[in-house]
Design a binder for these strands. Structure first.
Length: 872
RNA sequence: GCGGACGUGGUGGAACUGGUAGACACACGGGACUUAAAAUCCCGAGGGAGGUGACUCCCGUGCGGGUUCGAGUCCCGCCGUCCGCACCA
């Protein structure tokens, strides 16, 4: 039969229009089906979609289409995380207004996403930079403020000197700004904070309930929150004349080692150090020096441990007459615990290093329980010469009343004694800091407060919301354009009417993305959320996005949801019931001899294996093939999805993105891989057009019985249906793809059977095949569906077929026969054959007899439907 | 340093709760079709040895041990790669 090639360019736009005209992806609030909310992390509108987006949104779309076919009422929305620095950079560099730049990008990217054939509900589209959206964000913030979930105070903050803004701790990566890559400095500024640390315990505990989250992400969040249990207690201070000089409060998780205390140390920012520095020029100088070196993480890593005595001593709480010196030390952080520690060099590496450097005593107070007598004496006397401290399990030594106790018992004893004296209490400390959300930037959501000289901080009244960004701003000098604006910030105080100024800081853009999933439930409402809608749609059943948001966005969203619950905007704690983190898209990197990067599209590859060479297309110059790395603009190893869609169509790129690599792992983009996907698109088209004429009429009744060929085909059909369904359900797209290939291979090698029952089975098989690949290649699916004349409805409207479980059960099974654990033969027996029969048949096999070689048979293990193992 | 994940052919990867290792794909080799190429179709293939042959044997899931009738899978100890956190007391 004459073959026409499937032309995706033409057909894909056709089917996209058909779907749009029928409004098939509009999520209706009153649909009777069970709801299913599938969401992919919304993009920043940088201008063009990249392969990571394609992978992410394709996965989500497969789930959405599958769930829809399963009868769920699916919510699958899309929006834009459209505030942020790049828009301002464009304004600075190219003189284009951030709004114009952003919305032009959104238009371009919307078109690209539509070309992918995603089954999105565009009626719910939102952009965080729309006043419609950020007005509600301002309402939320003011509600949080009223509920005590927000605070404003000066704090040492991470200052990005390039972006000229503050960064949250989570946005500092290896001491550098997450966006600019600049070395972050420490500055003291007044900032707005969301009190996320108040929820440390809740955020930590609730991780256990997030069963459909990757363990990796839960572990990362656990570590980030960083819970540690210990004792916070006060030690008496004396000055150099031995007169009482107040108290020093410290926190420790190893208070069992109190008898090993040989010094105490405070942060250079600790009040005690500050105070002492006033009368001690040497100390003041030391503090300055530490501060200078101490701003970058890199410096911290290399810095030797140093300290400067304060001239104070701490009285040992349990050893009569013993005092130890107090230092200001460079390794003690003001931001954790009390900013002060007691030093036990015996069992803390940092304290150990410090004491070695300063020549302070080291006393071991914990030893492994099996050290006795001489061995124990050797351990103690040789301790100072070790390179590493002992921090393993053991019993207390050199510790008077604690001697012989285990570590937990010793901790308990010490805690009790401090509590009894009223000088200490058990405390849980967290590493998690409050979330600073003030940014000194223009292109963000204005923080809706007014600063009045008499009334202080005054929330903008609801009737005056939203506080809109002014359009007429300039970017000709560094700093915040809102602050430079001649009039915008000058307003009358809503309380007293006197002259006041607006807050000119805007929100961190992570605020915008911390609640958009809730906004999608009623995206155009004039209040932040409509309870009826959020209660119906939330939580997100399946959230899909990159692992890079494991902490930042996902932790903030979890906090925000709780804050929204506290203020009545939602009714639940956890926004995302299921989370999936997809891997990255990688590509080889290419460089010319002079070290400059070359785009893949400018490289021609020749040869295979070790003879594989790359040449520059334009000049023919040799190109060095570098390591496979994440696609990034800086390495010039990106491939533009639009080019691929233009060349091969959306179905091909979608199929390739789902093939081969498990979705949570990185995938390597290769030209050969795309071509393979393209060939399969054409192959499916040929398969359906070739076989369609042999398929029975769609109106034919199901035959009462099936012949051997028809039955075999039906078994293959239902096996594929069962496997692919399970795979999609578990997001194992690569396996779903493999099972579809397998089924297609079966259909390519059908027997020449013209019987009516076979025709019926063939129609069933073809319809099933199309349904199975439909979520992945929806345009080709529709086209094949029409070609087959499957039904009057679209494939997209067709329910997922039901598996006939009886067809999954084979009558006979082939099992392996082992002798002493080595496979020697196989055996095909009836599925329900009794053990004795299987054993007898196995022992008749020639290969088995030869392997036994006349030895005695000691035992025969028969696992029906699995294996036989003869032990001889 | 701490925490976590992973290690299977030339390559990406399959293998459900321990039960025929290498499904499926890519790349490759051979053949058919074609004037030729592309496309397509058929065949082959973990490594090694033996046999004319349907076949048979040995080795094989990073390395070394262990548990088990049986280990890619479980346990112990190494090696390597990747990721996260990192002076958090």
């Amino acid at each position: 039969m004459a073959q026409s090639r499937y032309n995706p360019r033409d057909r894909e736009t056709h089917w996209q229009k058909v779907w749009a005209d029928k409004d098939l992806f509009h999520a209706k609030d009153d649909d009777p089906g069970e709801k299913y909310y599938v969401l992919e992390m919304f993009p920043y509108p940088s201008g063009r979609i990249h392969m990571g987006h394609v992978r992410n949104y394709t996965m989500g779309d497969v789930v959405a289409r599958y769930k829809r076919a399963m009868g769920f009422n699916v919510l699958h929305p899309m929006g834009w995380d459209s505030f942020g620095m790049p828009a301002e950079n464009a304004a600075i560099q190219r003189g284009v207004h951030p709004r114009e730049w952003t919305y032009a990008n959104i238009d371009a990217m919307r078109g690209q996403l539509k070309a992918l054939g995603l089954s999105l509900d565009w009626s719910r589209e939102l952009a965080t930079s729309d006043p419609e959206y950020y007005a509600q964000e301002q309402r939320l913030f003011l509600d949080f403020l009223q509920a005590g979930l927000v605070s404003r105070h000066t704090a040492k903050v991470n200052w990005d000197p390039v972006d000229q803004t503050v960064l949250a701790n989570e946005q500092v990566i290896d001491g550098k700004g997450w966006r600019s890559g600049a070395e972050v400095e420490q500055r003291e500024l007044t900032q707005w904070f969301l009190n996320i640390s108040d929820m440390s315990e809740e955020l930590l505990d609730a991780l256990d309930g997030l069963e459909r989250w990757p363990d990796k992400v839960r572990t990362m969040q656990r570590n980030w929150i960083g819970r540690s249990e210990g004792l916070q207690f006060k030690l008496d201070l004396v000055d150099d004349t031995n007169a009482p000089a107040g108290e020093l409060e410290v926190f420790s998780t190893r208070h069992d080692t109190i008898f090993g205390m040989t010094f105490c140390a405070v942060s250079i920012d600790h009040p005690l150090a500050q105070q002492a520095a006033e009368n001690d020029a040497g100390l003041a100088e030391y503090i300055e020096e530490v501060r200078r070196i101490g701003t970058t993480e890199e410096a911290l890593e290399k810095a030797e441990k140093t300290g400067h005595a304060l001239g104070l001593r701490v009285v040992h709480p349990f050893i009569e007459g013993k005092t130890v010196p107090v230092f200001a030390a460079n390794f003690v952080l003001m931001s954790y615990g009390t900013g002060a520690i007691f030093g036990c060099p015996g069992h803390d590496q940092r304290d150990f290093d410090f004491c070695k450097a300063l020549g302070i005593d080291i006393i071991p107070v914990v030893a492994s329980a099996d050290l006795k007598g001489e061995a124990l004496a050797g351990y103690v006397s040789g301790y100072c010469d070790r390179d590493e401290i002992y921090d393993g399990d053991g019993v207390l030594i050199n510790s008077e009343f604690l001697d012989g106790l285990g570590i937990p018992a010793a901790k308990e004893e010490i805690a009790k004694r401090f509590e009894a004296k009223g000088k200490g209490e058990r405390k849980v400390n967290y590493r998690l800091r409050d979330w600073g959300v003030s940014r000194q930037r223009y292109w963000g959501c204005p923080i809706p407060v007014i600063h009045c000289p008499t009334c202080g901080v005054v929330p903008v009244p609801d009737k005056d919301l939203p506080v809109e960004l002014p359009d007429d701003v300039t970017f000709d000098k560094p700093g915040n354009p809102l602050d430079h604006h001649p009039t915008w910030k000058h307003v009358a105080c809503p309380k007293c009417g006197e002259a006041a100024v607006r807050e000119t800081d805007t929100f961190d853009t992570f605020v915008d993305s911390s609640w958009y999933f809730a906004r999608f439930c009623a995206p155009h409402a004039d209040i932040p959320t409509v309870r009826e809608q959020v209660d119906a749609w939330l939580p997100v059943d399946q959230y899909i996005g990159g692992i890079e948001h494991a902490i930042l966005h996902l932790l903030y969203s979890r906090f925000f949801t709780r804050a929204m619950k506290a203020t009545g905007h939602v009714g639940l704690d956890e926004p995302f019931a299921g989370l999936f983190t997809q891997g990255m898209v990688n590509h080889e990197t290419y460089k010319l001899a002079d070290g400059s990067w070359v785009m893949p599209s400018d490289v021609r590859i020749e040869g295979e294996g070790t003879a594989r060479k790359a040449l520059h297309v334009e000049t023919g110059a040799p190109v060095r093939i570098g390591p496979v790395e994440k696609m990034s603009k800086s390495k010039h190893n990106t491939v533009d999805p639009e080019d691929i869609i233009g060349h091969y169509g959306a179905d091909t790129i979608r199929w390739f993105m789902l093939s081969d690599s498990p979705p949570e792992r990185d995938v390597q983009w290769t030209e050969a891989g795309v071509e393979g996907a393209w060939r399969f698109v054409q192959r499916l088209w040929r398969l359906v057009t070739d076989l369609a004429p042999r398929a029975g009429s769609r109106d034919a009744e199901q035959p009462a019985t099936f012949g051997e060929d028809a039955l075999a085909l039906r078994r293959a059909t239902h096996k594929a249906l069962s496997e692919v369904s399970k795979d999609i359900e578990a997001l194992r797209f690569n396996r779903a793809v493999a099972h579809i290939y397998e089924f297609a291979n079966t259909l390519s090698a059908l027997p020449e059977n013209k019987d009516e029952d076979f025709g019926w089975a063939l129609r069933e098989a073809l319809e099933t095949l199309i349904v199975l690949f439909g979520p992945m290649m929806p345009h080709l699916g529709e086209e094949c569906w029409k070609q087959l004349g499957a039904s009057d409805a679209l494939l997209t409207e067709t329910p997922w077929p039901k598996v006939d479980a009886e067809l999954l059960v084979e009558d006979t099974v082939t099992i392996a026969v082992q002798v002493n654990g080595k496979r020697r033969d196989e055996l095909t027996v009836a599925r329900d054959a009794p053990k004795e029969d299987i054993e007898a048949a196995a022992l008749r096999l020639e290969n088995v007899l030869r392997a036994i070689e006349g030895r005695d048979i000691k035992k025969v293990i028969v696992v029906p439907q699995r294996i036989v193992n003869v032990v001889a």
